[in-house]
Amino acid sequence: MNVAHRLSRAGMAGALTTAALMLAGCATGQPGNCAEGFEAFERDTLYFGRSIPTGGQVSDADWTDFLDTRVPAFPQGFTVIDAAGQWRGASGQVVREPSKLVVLLHPRDAKADAAIAALIDTYRQRFAQEAVLQERQAVCARF
């Protein structure tokens, strides 16, 4: 399944509901202890800010190019969500910016970990980003 979904803020509620239903398949919340019919996966959510510190934003064309050339390392599929983010950088200044969340569902292994690290490093270098937030959870899912 190679799917990229683009959701509005209203669609975020649906995405969160889907995530909650996927988690409902976990018997104990521990990886490997999934209810019958479910498989253990890792879910990484990556938060990509689109403001460029030197000015401007990552354009839609640049984002699409990044997505098309870097994220295919996850052939199982992924979801992209439009978001409005806020964070405090190393300077202490609060930054509000349009953002993209990429949700990856994958087996836990060194290959996936290396691909995610490379994805983050590439984005940070290409668009002069101070950080890309990575959030990880063990989940149970079925398709």
Rank of each mutant, 00 (worst) to 15 (best):
M1H: 03
V3I: 07
V3K: 04
R6N: 10
R6M: 03
T17G: 03
L21I: 01
L23N: 12
G25H: 10
G25C: 08
A27Y: 10
T28R: 13
Q30I: 01
G32I: 15
E36R: 06
E36D: 15
G37K: 04
F38A: 11
A40E: 08
Y47A: 12
G49C: 02
P53W: 14
G55D: 05
G56W: 08
S59C: 09
D60C: 01
A61K: 07
D62R: 14
F66I: 07
F66M: 00
D68H: 09
T69H: 10
R70H: 05
R70A: 04
V71C: 13
V71K: 11
P75C: 06
Q76C: 07
G77C: 01
T79F: 04
T79Q: 08
W87K: 05
S91I: 03
Q93T: 11
R96E: 05
E97L: 00
S99W: 13
K100F: 03
L101R: 09
V102T: 15
V103A: 14
L105D: 06
L105T: 05
D109L: 01
D109K: 02
A110S: 11
A110N: 13
K111N: 15
D113R: 15
A115G: 01
I120C: 05
D121T: 12
T122E: 12
Y123A: 06
A128Y: 07
Q129H: 03
E130C: 04
V132W: 12
L133S: 02
Q134G: 10
Q134T: 09
C140N: 06
F143C: 00
